[in-house]
Amino acid sequence: MVLRALEEAGGIFILFFQSLYWLFRPPFRGTIFLQQMEFIGTKSSFIVGLTGLFTGMVFALQTSYALRLFDLEYMIGPSTVLSLTRELGPVLTALLVTGRAGSAMCTEIGTMRVTEQVDALHTMAVSPVQYLVVPRIISGVLMLPLLAALFSLMGALGGYLIAVFMLGQSPNVFITETLYSVDANDFYIGLIKAAVFGLILTLVGCYKGYRAEGGSAGVGKATTEAVVLASVTVLISDYFLTSWMY
């Protein structure tokens, strides 16, 4: 069990370094990069935005009950937006994208592996790491911060709607208190976290697919493992990133 975990961690690191090596070598396949960015980024934006909106609304509502006890209702804005930019935005976005795109890339690469399409790439003198893994990892690292920002923005809007239209807070209080308490750093750190999560979820998804074996059952197993491993790694690394950056 321990040996297997170590072997897996080693395999993921090797794939990471192979990807770095192939990243800077021609040919550069712009179309594939754009396709992956569209798949990971654009096509995830609706679900990420929707989840962000409702997360912000729920968060504002729940904190209002607690803050009301201490007469601190003016803190609804800052508490909602801070939680979103620092934690909820990057983490929930990463978990959503893991479920949506991480699993899909694992299944796609895994199916290509068990039907010898990955071997076919190799025999046609195309590095499978460069062709399949690099564009997905780069797209993950670039798109996750944007998606996390969208999540936080929609969440802030959700919090604003609840605070102003349901709890009757003045818009002015919500906005000034939020701007007063939240600085740009909170936002940037959230974005850095999201980029790291983007790396993790794409790397794990690609690695598990790349190592899939045993037909369709093997691909199914690889996908399940990819989603679990990527989610757990995101949550654990979130703790370490938070304790390191604040």
């Binding site: 010898e116 399409q117 076919a120 190799h122 003198a125």
Partner: peptide, 23 residues
């Protein structure tokens, strides 16, 4: 090394058992 191998592989073609076409 892999980069040299990729040059050599351009001299090869391979027909796979299950065709291995990109679907």
């Amino acid at each position: 090394k892999e980069v040299r191998m990729n040059q050599i592989l351009k001299r090869f073609g391979m027909l796979f058992q299950n065709a291995a076409l990109f679907d």
